[in-house]
């Protein structure tokens, strides 16, 4: 799809995204838990599922623009998930929603919104790329998305084309030593395992690509 032409369509994409995200993260709940247990308390999968369930519930009957739905979903996610990752991922979703507002919902607008959400996560989490966090998936993703936007790609195609950059970024966290969060205190023990937050973010991004495709088909 080139862009979400109608308001109804954009709301539908938000609902599809959250439903896809819950399904995809749910499938990988145990994997995320194992990654987290390497240097954390092993509950990242459970936390993400809990947050996404609440986010889905929040938008089921909610009224408002796609931006407003996202803002509500983010708040519900943070509250249900708790912990550092709940606060940060929820803030990311909420910020994207606030930036998108009533639209337009095209690739340049989404790029700007995701950039704003990511900046906010970096500032709140006091992290930088290379610290073995969600930023190691988001930063290369944004660079790839920017290139797609500059080349005039459509929303669905551009987003999907940027996914491998996020996944390579998440995989590269295996070689990193955590410098932020509780796992930072575990230093070297985090080496050899991908950061669970970066991996779960890849599932959220992939779920969005599938939502754009499906909404485009309808």
């Amino acid at each position: 799809m080139t862009r979400m032409e109608s308001t109804t369509n954009a709301q539908q994409v938000v609902r599809l995204w959250l439903a896809n995200a819950l399904a995809l993260v749910g499938e990988h709940e145990e994997e995320l838990g194992r990654l987290d247990a390497a240097a954390g308390d092993g509950d990242h999968g459970t936390t993400m599922v809990r947050g996404l369930r609440a986010a889905n519930a929040a938008v089921t009957d909610a009224k408002g623009s796609a931006g407003e739905l996202l803002a509500q979903a983010g708040a519900a996610f943070s509250d249900a998930a708790g912990g550092a990752s709940g606060a940060l991922v929820g803030m990311w979703i909420t910020t994207i929603g606030q930036r998108l507002g009533d639209g337009p919902y095209d690739l340049p607008a989404l790029l700007e919104a995701v950039q704003a959400g990511t900046n906010r996560v970096a500032r709140l989490g006091k992290a930088q790329p290379g610290d073995k966090t969600v930023l190691d998936a988001l930063t290369p993703f944004l660079a790839a998305l920017e290139a797609q936007a500059a080349a005039g790609a459509s929303l669905g195609d551009g987003w999907r084309a940027a996914l491998p950059a996020a996944e390579q970024g998440a995989a590269a966290t295996r070689e990193m030593v955590a410098r932020r969060g509780r796992s930072a205190k575990l230093g070297e023990r985090s080496l050899g395992h991908a950061d669970p937050g970066a991996v779960s973010m890849c599932y959220l991004l992939r779920a969005a690509a599938d939502a754009f495709d499906r909404a485009g088909d309808e």
Binding site: D41, D43, T47, S78, D79, G82, G83, A84, G86, A87
Partner: peptide, 12 residues
Amino acid sequence: MGNIFSAPSAEQ
């Protein structure tokens, strides 16, 4: 009170 070993949310 957060979940086991997990901070409570800002909302709480």
